[in-house]
């Protein structure tokens, strides 16, 4: 049996007069990969920002039983809900290694942190080869790996990924893809927001389609595959 680890209920976000999210609800079970697809500007990032505590919202977001409205963004991170943004927000003049250490800066168990470092370097050998390189000087794909690696250093229970494949070469996407599969096998819960519907459909067990701030469709991967509208509007292009 699985419990929802993250529950979003009737989420509304306003930017001034514009209504960016209109009553979005979804629930994510422990251990699954949940995909959120939709066009650019549909509200995927806004939803993730609300969950991470970066924007004001109405409605409720519950993580591991707690109402996140009452938890500060840094406590949300400490509780294992880690957000990997579309901009990645790496520390540009820190080395790969320092960026990874920052991911674990709030953790006290040094041995576990060392184990996680070894795990990240093993997961992304490209990072291992570039330990001392400054994040700023790396390619987009390497930066994406570093962003995921830094998130993993925070020992996540739930990992939120925003557009992890955006602008990346197919060979790099494959590397990210393999990494996600391995992490998922190890029991990590992943919330994946993607414009790249093919990528999301390949990994997610369940998905939602967001358009103009509303969930238009929700269901299993198989249901999405068979859906005429999704196939024509989203999958065909890729």
């Amino acid at each position: 049996m699985t419990d929802p680890i993250l529950e979003v209920d009737d989420l509304n976000v306003y930017y001034g007069k514009s209504h960016a999210l209109k009553g979005v609800s979804l629930s994510i079970d422990e251990g699954e990969i949940y995909g959120v697809i939709g066009p650019n500007g549909a509200g995927k990032t806004t939803m993730l920002n609300a969950i991470a505590g970066f924007v004001e919202y109405e409605g409720s977001i519950r993580y591991d039983g707690a109402d996140l409205a009452r938890v500060s963004p840094q406590q949300i991170v400490r509780d294992g809900l880690i957000y990997c943004t579309e901009d990645r927000d790496l520390f540009p003049y820190f080395s790969v290694h320092e960026n990874l250490l920052m991911g674990a800066q709030f953790r006290d168990d040094r041995d576990a942190v060392q184990d996680d470092l070894a795990m990240v370097y093993e997961l992304f050998p490209r990072l291992d080869e570039r330990r001392e390189q400054e994040a700023e000087t790396m390619s987009g794909g390497e930066q994406q790996m570093l962003a995921v690696g830094r998130a993993l250093m925070s020992d996540p229970d739930v990992l939120m990924l925003d557009e992890p494949t955006l602008g990346l070469a197919p060979v790099i996407i494959q590397d990210i893809s393999d990494a996600l599969e391995r992490l998922s096998e190890q029991g990590l819960t992943i919330l994946l927001a993607e414009q790249n519907s093919t990528f999301a459909l390949r990994h997610a067990e369940r998905l939602s389609l967001i358009e103009t701030g509303e969930i238009e469709l929700a269901g299993t991967s198989a249901e999405f595959h068979d859906n005429e509208y999704v196939r024509e509007a989203y999958v065909g292009v890729h």
């Binding site: 991470a52 970066f54 500060s72 963004p73 840094q74 991170v77 400490r78 880690i82 957000y83 990997c84 943004t85 901009d87 927000d89 790496l90 520390f91 540009p92 003049y93 820190f94 920052m102 991911g103 800066q105 709030f106 830094r150 998130a151 925070s154």
Partner: peptide, 12 residues
């Protein structure tokens, strides 16, 4: 270097 990055890594 990056305020958002710091927030994402749990810095107060």
């Amino acid at each position: 270097m990056s305020e958002r990055g710091a927030q994402l890594t749990g810095v107060d």
